[in-house]
Design a protein around this nucleic acid. Structure first.
Length: 284
DNA sequence: TCCCAGGCTGCTT
DNA sequence: AAGCAGCATGGG
């Protein structure tokens, strides 16, 4: 098995911040690089000045899948350019998060990951996802000397797994959610491929049919898995940021908050959300 | 020991 | 529509 290597010229790409910002949960830092699995391929990424160096275990002839995952073609300046002008809090967060990008993940893995995420810290989500892959995924080739790695199990596989087996992967009360969602997908009651072609509202409604999926998790999948740029996941950190910057010492009702988000952040609300989230979590 | 974590569900008001 | 307990598990 010949390892394979490629270089991608990038401007304005903060790889560590991107891979560790709570969007994806399979990246591990090792010796100054990041090891992960994308779509059944082991990948190691390393940031160098002006470029990203990628190594795989298996030969690769077309790197389109990685360019897409990393969203290399996205122009961050254009995105920042449509943020609301007078919003100093957002501008500050965006400057502090320069080079942080939204990844484009496989929808099922993204969905399953965020079902596991509810009321968990990022480090614990990483542990859960690692346990699921090791136990139910398929081994993937890795270069000599590297830790073994597994693909993320498909929903058909998880649909035949017992809740107690999932609880052994530390899912806790989320076990029936992941189980139920996998079974519903396996039964064809929701089609993840079809979601990509729907409007934001229709797509969200479709995901909300799945057990364990509420507004927050649905918007995470819409943003990180499907690239709906206006999706705006609201978790406890974003709530803190919104209250601090936009509703100081006032109590905000959920309906009003949703209206504010829709009206204020604009067509790239998802990026705005990620910057506010990352800034609040790491720098504020 | 206590509080909290990239929440959702079902029940009450 | 809004508020809230309960749900596992582990970090700080």
């Amino acid at each position: 098995m010949n390892p394979c290597r490629a270089e991608f010229l990038v401007e304005d790409y903060d790889l560590p911040a991107t891979l560790a910002s709570g969007q994806a949960f399979r990246w591990r830092e090792q010796d100054g690089g990041w090891n992960g699995v994308i779509g059944g391929r082991w990948v190691r990424l390393r940031a160098e000045p002006g470029r990203i160096v990628a190594e795989t275990a298996a030969p690769v002839s077309d790197w389109k899948w990685l360019r897409h995952y990393l969203q290399l073609e996205v122009n961050l300046a254009e995105i920042h350019g449509v943020f609301p002008r007078g919003d100093e809090a957002l501008q500050t967060a965006a400057r502090a998060c320069a080079g942080l990008r939204l990844l484009r993940q496989e929808p099922w893995e993204c969905l399953a990951s965020f079902i596991c995420s509810s009321s968990k810290q990022i480090s614990q989500i990483q542990q859960i996802i690692a346990l699921l892959a090791r136990r139910f995924g398929e081994p993937v080739p890795v270069p000599a000397g590297q830790e073994p790695a597994w693909s993320f199990p498909g929903y058909a596989r998880l649909a035949e797994v017992s809740q107690s087996a999932l609880r052994e992967c530390k899912l806790g009360f989320r076990a029936p959610y992941l189980c139920g969602t996998a079974q519903k997908l396996a039964a064809g009651q929701v089609d993840l491929a079809r979601v990509a072609g729907l409007s934001l509202e229709e797509a969200r409604a479709e995901l909300l049919k799945l057990p364990g999926v509420g507004m927050k998790i649905a918007d995470c999948v819409l943003l990180f898995g499907y690239g709906f740029a206006e999706a705006f996941p609201v978790d406890v950190w974003i709530m803190k940021a919104l209250r601090r910057h936009y509703f100081p010492r006032r109590r905000v009702k959920p309906a009003r908050l949703r209206r504010f988000i829709r009206g204020h952040f604009g067509p790239q609300a998802g990026y705005a959300q990620q910057y506010l989230f990352h800034y609040m979590r790491t720098k504020a």
